[in-house]
């Protein structure tokens, strides 16, 4: 029975079924993957010079928190996100600007003057004045703004904020 022409026809239909199914699956399935992962593949870049106010406002040697906000579009909704940086002014009026986001699990760190370190409230990570890890789980020092991302114009401090 397996050599009758009927079986040939059956195999032919099987082939066509497979082909049509594969085409339909591909035409729907492949775009579907792109469709589902789409928000993760598209990011609006955000960058701007953020004014942090006059340099004199920042005491020498003491990290001072500065908060600023940026608005962002997620999908079709605008949200205003808040960001914090610690500004450390050095005696020669150069500055170190550190992000206040712990490099471990993104909690916000606080400056503890008694211990002269940044302490993360989540897992007790400690960072030094220049951001290096003193103890705890963080994999790397606090993110800092490089020298070309910091500028002082007419006594006012600016940082170049960039979010990819």
């Amino acid at each position: 029975m397996s050599q009758t022409p009927h079986m040939g026809r059956r195999e032919f239909v099987q082939l066509v079924t497979g082909f049509v199914g594969a085409v339909m699956g591909a035409v729907i399935g492949l775009p579907a993957i792109g469709y589902l992962i789409s928000p993760a593949t598209k990011r609006r870049q955000s960058e701007a010079w953020i004014p942090l106010g006059p340099l004199e406002n920042y005491p020498v040697g003491v990290p001072t928190l500065f908060n600023f906000t940026r608005s962002k579009v997620n999908g079709w909704e605008k949200t205003v996100n808040s960001y914090g940086v610690f500004v450390v002014r050095h005696p020669d009026d150069s500055v170190t600007v550190l992000s206040n986001v712990c490099t471990h699990l993104a909690c916000r760190v606080n400056w503890v003057p008694e211990n002269q370190w940044f302490l993360c409230p989540c897992h007790d990570a400690q960072f030094g004045l220049d951001g290096q890890v003193l103890g705890g789980p963080p994999p790397r020092p606090l993110d800092s703004y490089t020298q070309d991302a910091v500028k002082i114009e007419d006594g006012n401090l600016f940082i170049f904020f960039k979010e990819a």
Binding site: P31, Y35, S38, P39, K42
Partner: peptide
């Protein structure tokens, strides 16, 4: 959200 599907999401117009 439909505007978003049509213009921003990859292949949203197709679906």
């Amino acid at each position: 959200s439909i505007n978003y599907i049509m213009n921003e999401v990859a292949f949203g117009w197709l679906i």
